Computed example of a mutant assay.
Amino acid sequence: MKKLMVSLTALALSVFSAHAVSNTTIVHPEPRAGSALDLYAIELIEFLAEKSGEPVTLQAFDGQIGSQSRKVEMLKQGKLTIDWLGADRTLESELIPIRYPVFRGLLGHRLFITNQATEPQLAQISSAGDLQSLTMIQGQGWADVKVLNSAGFRVREISSFENIFKVVDTGRADLFPRALIEPFSELAERPQYGNLLVDPHLMLIYRFPMFLFVSPQHADVADMLNGAFEAAYQDGSFIEFFNNAPLVKETFEKANIGERTVIRVDNPHLSNETQAIPDTYWLDIEAQ
Rank of each mutant, 00 (worst) to 15 (best):
L13V: 13
L91W: 03
S69A: 15
M224K: 15
V15L: 07
I125K: 07
V198C: 07
S93G: 13
D88W: 01
E46N: 13
Q64F: 13
G141M: 02
L247E: 05
T57L: 14
F184R: 04
I42F: 10
E286M: 10
G141I: 05
P29A: 03
L283V: 12
V145H: 01
L95M: 15
N244V: 07
E240I: 04
S67T: 14
E182W: 02
A12T: 13
M1C: 09
H269D: 12
G53K: 03
L175M: 09
Q288N: 07
M224R: 12
I158M: 12
E230M: 05
L134G: 15
D174L: 00
A10M: 15
E162F: 04
L4D: 14
L95D: 05
I205N: 08
K166I: 02
D88I: 04
A179D: 12
I42Y: 09
I285H: 01
G129P: 01
L91A: 10
L204K: 06
D220T: 10
E94V: 14
G129C: 04
I82F: 05
I137G: 09
S237C: 05
G258Y: 08
I113Y: 01
P246M: 02
G34Q: 07
G78N: 05
P246T: 01
T261F: 01
G141V: 03
V102N: 05
I257V: 14
L131H: 01
A151T: 10
Y193N: 06
V6W: 11
M1Q: 14
V221D: 04
R156C: 03
A276N: 10
R70P: 00
A49C: 08
L204E: 07
S35W: 00
F61N: 14
L197P: 14
P216A: 08
V27L: 12
I82R: 00
Y281N: 08
H269G: 12
L225E: 07
F112N: 06
L85D: 11
N226I: 09
T9I: 14
A143W: 01
F241K: 12
